[in-house]
Amino acid sequence: MGIFDKFKKGLEKARNTFFGSIKTIFAGKTLDDETLEELEEILVMSDMGVEVTQKILKELKEFYKKSDDSDPLILLRDIMEENLTNEPINLNPTKKPYVILVVGVNGNGKTTTIAKLANQYIKNGKSVVLAAGDTFRAAAIEQLKHWGEKIGAEVIAHEHGSDAAAVAFDAVKHAKAKGKDVVLIDTAGRLHNKSNLMEELKKIKRVVQKELPEGIDETLLILDGTTGQNGIVQAKAFKETVDITGIVITKLDGTAKGGIAFAIDHDLNIPIRMIGVGEKEDDLQPFVPHEYCDALLGLEE
């Protein structure tokens, strides 16, 4: 199984009814207005947004003129790929403890992604501490504890309703004292337009810094792969508040295409680190722009 098989499978199902096969639609086509409009449709329907779509199509037109008899679809794939940065997450950190803070809006897959990431670190022989920093949502702590037990990670939790920053502090302190390798901090889902909740994230960062002067090593924003243009607003707001260093796009095992990745990379320069392709602990994949663009456009190697 290729790493993007789950993503492809979902998209194939989508294409069968929506476009037929993209490859056959475009076979032998030149880049006329009709083809451009069809490509626009495909890109906008992937949640790429109008602006980025126009930009990419403009580039496509320019390149097409210069390069005779090339397949417009392959050209498009190459241009799309160029528009994505590839910076994988550090799965073998030497720094100890390596601290990752996970943030995002409600229900997009933060807690599950933490379990998946922890699972990868554990497979790499690292010891992992999970901080149950969602002290707000009903049974969020139980959910994280369940995962901790399942994959063999220690969970540091306080009472429901307690201070999230205090949980993060305890987890980091514990990891430092016991020589643990990685700390993953879960946080409650919060909408980026609620400033009081966003402030809470700053406090978590500050408090961790008290224990570890170098502070948090990676701040991951989780983004639901079905999200539309609001994803850009989310990324902007979280970036301003806690300086996001990477993004994980989840739920790409459905038929959503996660085109918002392009807009975010384009506007904000935050790399997409991983993608989530299911609800199990193994369903996390590195983000590989080439394979992603192939899958999105229905191209095979």
Binding site: V105, D224, T226, T227, N230, G231, G254, T255
Partner: peptide
């Protein structure tokens, strides 16, 4: 349905 959903909402 999540109000932040994008283009795929139609299909789901």
């Amino acid at each position: 349905v999540d109000s932040m959903m994008g283009q795929d909402a139609v299909r789901t």
